[in-house]
Design a protein around this nucleic acid. Structure first.
Length: 484
RNA sequence: GCUCCCAUCGUCUAGAGGCCUAGGACACCCGCCUCUCACGUGGGUAACAGGGGUUCGAAUCCCCUUGGGAGCGCCA
């Protein structure tokens, strides 16, 4: 366990990621999970996973699956089994009853209409919209009377009315609320089910969570939750509210600008390590360093260097980072990443079927030239299309143009190549250069028509590499197709 | 409306009173390299939201304004 100066290591660090399965794992959730994971790893602790599925209407098994799948793809494995919040409802009820018994909670029979009227009134008076506490100090007789009428109460927290509630947030600093602005929140609904506010506190306590790292949108919840901890006499965990991620236009993240499930990033051809690196730099920094291996992130990550202002999602930077990681990845590993990707993209399964051992060998051989020209795996796959393109090749517009203008050089070139004793980059380059010299033209005047003939395009990896990847027979055949 | 949070290049950020003529990265522009496109490499454009303080000195501390964001449910 690493020694952390200034921190007491008597208690093992426990963080948790607590998504609600009402949709996919979006990019902001992914970053929250990453920060929790890094913090836990950094301190030799654990990151737990809790599925907040108490909203039975909106929670779906498919969403749960998508979240687990997304986390695994991102490489953020949690410790132990995932905990399902709904399964713990009985314990939440118990705690609510206990609070009732202790006198720090009370039954409230206010109707939805009454509540609505309170909000209207508060709005009209320019006051905070809050419950007015009308059942807070009712007599036992009043309560008995309401119950006799068959009314079902909610249980509300008897929150402090004076003083302030303070949290020392590890990211946002000290945040203070006047208690008069906080009302008596509902702990247990009239149908006997716990509210989120209660469930979170009980679960975090029972799970021995020491650090609650979550989105900034929960900052105000922290005040109310700390009141529940106080009421129960439980130790309040450290809070760290990290700023939200916005879209490229500064507005709330929508599907248009990146609020996609992480599986969408997989389908767009991003590498999980690149996404992790991109995400960790959104909000967190370590001086001027931009590139972090996972090991470096783990050893360097801290909450102190997480910024307090929201960040915008920028695809251009993600792409750049992804390109960087692709270039650093071995040819074999990239091939493996493509294998993972193919089932998730259009036309991928068909392509996978065509990947015979021979084809794979060609891909691997082409990989060095391919990977430095691609920013995503999708581009990599696209760049490799020439490998198994069917003859005669379909030419794109630019390739057609090149051949129309300079295709005449191919005839004499073909003769020279056909008599080449050895099919290597060196031999091919020597031959083509010699031919260029013989024709009194620059190398480019021959390379471009060759590229068009061999790949059907105007851009490709180095032309001599293309020759070698394709092999003698296929290369010569493709050139002949264009000569005749 | 009320409460809370935030504010450095287009974007991500460094900066914790003098080291700042505000640094790095992405993007963009101009070169070099070169068989194309990339990669690599050299250079360039570009920011402390505004106004008041505090201080010998402020991007850094305080206040106000403005601008963003979040929350205000018997949703999570």
């Amino acid at each position: 366990m690493p020694e952390i100066p200034g921190e007491i290591m008597s208690e093992p660090v426990v963080t948790r990621f607590a998504p609600s399965p009402t949709g996919y794992l979006h990019i902001g959730g992914g970053r929250t999970a990453l920060f929790n994971w890094l913090y836990a790893k950094r301190h030799g602790g654990k990151m737990l996973l809790r599925i907040e599925d108490t909203d039975r209407e909106r929670s779906t098994p498919a969403a749960i699956e998508a979240i687990l799948d997304g986390l695994k793809w991102l490489g953020l494995e949690w410790d132990g089994d995932a905990i399902y919040q709904f399964a713990r409802a009985e314990r939440h009820r118990e705690v609510a009853k206990e609070m009732l018994a202790k006198g720090c909670a009370y039954k409230c029979f206010a109707t939805p209409e009454e509540l609505e009227a309170m909000r209207e009134k508060a709005k009209a008076e320019g006051k905070p919209m809050r419950y007015d506490g009308r059942w807070r100090d009712r007599s036992a007789a009043d309560i008995a009377e309401a119950e006799a009428k068959g009314l079902k109460p909610v249980i509300r927290l008897k929150a402090p009315q004076q003083g302030e509630t303070v949290i020392d947030d590890l990211v946002q600093g000290r945040v203070t609320w006047a208690n008069e602005n906080l009302d008596d929140l509902v702990l247990l609904r009239s149908d006997g089910n716990p509210t989120y506010m209660l469930a979170v506190v009980v679960d975090d306590h029972d799970m021995a969570v020491t650090h609650v790292i979550r989105g900034d949108d929960h900052l105000t919840n922290a005040a109310r939750q700390s009141q529940i901890y106080e009421a129960m006499g439980w130790k309040i965990p450290a809070f760290a509210h990290i700023p939200l991620i916005h879209g490229s236009d500064g507005a709330k993240l929508s599907k248009r600008h990146g609020a996609l499930g992480v599986e969408a990033y997989r389908a767009m051809g991003y590498l999980p390590e690149a996404l992790r690196n991109y995400l960790v730099r959104l909000g967190w920094s370590h001086g001027d360093q931009e590139i972090f291996s996972t090991e470096e992130m783990v050893s360097l990550f801290d909450l102190k260097n997480v910024g307090r202002s929201p960040a915008r999602f920028d695809f251009a930077k993600l792409e750049n980072l992804n390109g960087h990681y692709m270039r650093q990845t071995s040819d074999e590993a990239l091939m493996a990443a493509i294998d993972v990707l193919l089932p998730h993209i259009e036309g991928g399964p068909e392509l996978a079927e065509r990947l015979t051992p021979e084809r794979r060998a060609q891909w691997i051989k082409a990989m060095p030239g391919l990977k430095e020209r691609a920013k995503t795996l999708l581009e990599l796959v696209d760049g490799a299309r020439f490998i198994d393109a069917a003859r005669p090749l379909a030419l794109d517009e630019k390739a057609k143009d090149i051949l129309a203008k300079g295709g005449a050089v191919l005839g004499p070139l073909l003769a020279r190549l056909e008599s080449l004793p050895e099919w290597s980059v060196e031999a091919l380059e020597g031959a083509v250069r010699a031919e260029a010299e013989a024709q009194g033209v620059k190398l480019g005047a021959l390379a471009q028509p060759l590229r068009a003939a061999l790949t059907g395009r105007s851009t490709s990896p180095g032309i001599f590499d293309v020759f070698v990847v394709l092999g003698r027979e296929e290369s010569l055949a493709r050139i002949r197709d264009q000569v005749s």
